[in-house]
Amino acid sequence: ILHVDMPEGLKMAGSRLLPTVLSLGFKYSDEGFFNRHLEPSGNGPVLFRLVNMYNPGTFDIDNMEQFRTAGISLFMTLPCEGDNLAAFNML
């Protein structure tokens, strides 16, 4: 698990987070997380996930303009599909 925590008193804006994670190949899931799949197209097994570090842990894709959080977490379970080291470096 890799935590990205904002400095005290600051929040990460969903309006900036969304285009960033999409440009990095993450795909929004039905569960409310962003998944990075083996294939950049969003196909294949999930390599790792990006979640909101704070409850409820999910993102509301329809309200990202209003969304703010003090942190996000990326998590990966090893071994994973494909090249473990390449997936870890991508994380």
Rank of each mutant, 00 (worst) to 15 (best):
I1M: 15
I1H: 14
H3Y: 15
V4G: 14
D5R: 14
M6S: 14
P7H: 05
P7E: 13
E8V: 14
L10N: 11
L10I: 09
G14V: 07
L17K: 10
L18Y: 00
L18M: 03
L18H: 01
P19C: 10
P19M: 08
T20V: 08
T20E: 10
V21F: 02
L22T: 05
L24M: 07
G25M: 05
K27C: 03
K27A: 00
K27I: 00
Y28Q: 10
S29C: 07
E31V: 14
G32T: 08
F33E: 07
R36Y: 08
H37P: 04
L38R: 00
E39K: 09
E39T: 06
P40H: 02
P40N: 01
S41Q: 11
G42P: 12
G42D: 13
G42W: 14
N43W: 09
G44H: 03
P45W: 07
V46R: 13
V46Y: 11
R49E: 05
V51A: 07
N52D: 15
M53F: 08
M53I: 06
M53K: 13
M53Q: 11
P56V: 10
F59C: 13
D60H: 04
D60S: 09
I61F: 10
I61G: 12
N63V: 03
E65M: 07
E65R: 05
Q66K: 00
R68E: 12
T69K: 02
T69H: 05
T69D: 08
T69F: 01
A70E: 10
A70T: 12
I72P: 06
S73Q: 09
L74S: 11
F75T: 15
F75P: 15
M76F: 05
T77N: 12
L78K: 03
E81M: 05
E81A: 02
G82M: 09
N84V: 02
L85H: 10
L85T: 00
L85I: 04
A86M: 06
